[in-house]
Amino acid sequence: MENGRKDSFTLAILVNNKSGVLMRVVALFSRRRYNIDSLSVSETENPDISRITIVVHGDRNITEQIILQVEKLVDVRKVYEMTMDGSIQRELVLIKLNADETTRTHIVEIGELFKAKVVDVTPSTITMQITGSLEKLDSFLELVRPYGIVELVRTGMTALERGSRPLSETTFGDEG
């Protein structure tokens, strides 16, 4: 339970920023039957490197296997497990909820508790934006679900290590 959910782990994968690299990583997960809960990818401070954040579920053994298999890909520079304590993990959710005159204020109040932002309102719906950890998003979604979710989109978890050193400078060695 490293990122707030049971049997779920967050991996940060630094890869060469080339076409087809994401496909190689995803194809490996698919071929070896590793389950991806969420995935996000973008360029980093170094334009030659992209960073893929993958949340996977499986037992400890599977996670170690995944790391070792992913490390073998030629375009993968580094794989790092982002622990709950050692990293900041965030996801952005856009959610469109049923909201009429009677329910709108309640929903906005719940949103305020979670620092959600109202980004669009129509006579029958309200659209909000919320960021946070898995736990926070899960509790928010549980509270607003009864109002009726019209549409929901999540960016996938992204994560950064705590402390001053960037991931690209940490050296491989004593983790196992």
């Binding site: 053994n61 296997q65 070792l68 073998k72």
Partner: peptide
């Protein structure tokens, strides 16, 4: 190849 450790047998 370290990926062979604990793959099929621990």
């Amino acid at each position: 190849d370290p990926a062979e450790f604990n793959k099929n047998i621990n």
